[in-house]
């Protein structure tokens, strides 16, 4: 059965994030009156994903290396995109990610006050990746580089849970149609299944957010439709966990979201018992 390999310290899996750093990311995010740039939304998205991945692997004694993680930026150049002490590294154990953010900011978070209302709480928000927006969108080059990194990773980890690639972009590839290279990437496989490619489309359009669609009908433009078409289907075990988490994810749903966050993908991963009342 595919996608059933245990994720453990002796048999870790891998996350590779591809981050659009093109000039178009200077444009406002989400339409309407928003003055927030897409590049800032993308930086928040990747930092939040890394934060959630670290927290998922954190135990009393420290962070367990269930994952190796890389961040490839694509814009003015294509290559490793960590800020701070991790700059220049492509694959990093998750415990190193945990211990080496470039800096830690404080942000306000609304939390349940236990009396039916919301209270504001200060939380730490680690930053590994800063917003960048320059030049074109060489998505094909980024996918090609991902293919090279993951071919080597799979050769070293042939029985691991397959790598997950998360591409965060506004969708407008400037170095050609990414369909072919995306297919080559998702044709890579461990004994447990093919590489999964999930896409987060961060758009200037004000359309409603879309999460894990199983058809392209409700997607607003050709860019989102293209990204949907190259996204992997969610494996059935992820759909089962999504259903246990109360999410409506139908058969054939793909790992694609439009102007929404992909943090739930991390909740769909099984590294052991996760209480269903944990929020």
């Amino acid at each position: 059965m595919s996608y059933s390999a245990e994720i453990s310290r002796v048999n870790p899996s891998c996350f590779l994030f591809l981050i659009d750093q093109s000039g178009s990311m200077e444009d406002p995010f989400g339409g309407g009156e928003s003055t927030r740039k897409k590049a800032d939304a993308v930086a928040d998205a990747i930092n939040k994903l890394l934060q959630n991945l670290v927290i998922k692997c954190a135990k009393s004694e420290g962070v367990r290396d269930y994952y190796q993680t890389g961040v490839i930026g694509y814009g003015e150049r294509v290559g490793p995109a960590f800020s701070g002490a991790l700059a220049g590294r492509d694959m990093v154990p998750i415990s190193d990610i945990a211990s080496t953010p470039a800096r830690i900011e404080e942000r306000a978070k609304k939390v349940d006050d236990g009396a039916g209302g919301l209270a504001e709480q200060k939380v730490k928000f680690p930053i590994w990746f800063d917003a960048v927006a320059k030049n074109g969108t060489p998505m094909c080059q980024a996918l090609t580089q991902a293919k090279g990194i993951l071919s080597a990773w799979i050769a070293q980890h042939p029985s691991s849970f397959p790598p997950i690639v998360i591409n965060i972009t506004d969708g407008e590839s400037t170095d050609g149609d990414p369909t072919g290279v995306a297919r080559e990437l998702t044709n890579l496989a461990t004994n447990d299944g093919n590489v999964l490619l999930f896409n987060l489309h961060c758009s200037s359009r004000g359309n409603a957010a879309v999460e894990y669609p199983s058809t392209e009908r409700e997607l607003p433009d050709e860019f989102s439709q293209l990204l949907y078409s190259i996204s992997s289907e969610l494996p059935s075990y992820m759909r089962n966990i999504a259903a246990q988490e109360g999410k409506n994810v139908s058969e054939g749903a793909r790992g694609f979201v439009f102007n929404a966050d992909l943090v739930s993908v991390i909740q769909f991963l099984d590294i052991g018992t996760r209480p269903n009342n944990l929020r």
């Binding site: 349940d112 246990q244 018992t273 996760r274 269903n276």
Partner: peptide, 16 residues
């Protein structure tokens, strides 16, 4: 059995 049972929490905000 599944991997998402409801459990007792040390966090008083999480009611069962």
């Amino acid at each position: 059995f599944n991997s998402r049972p409801t459990l007792l929490s040390s966090n008083p905000q999480v009611r069962v």
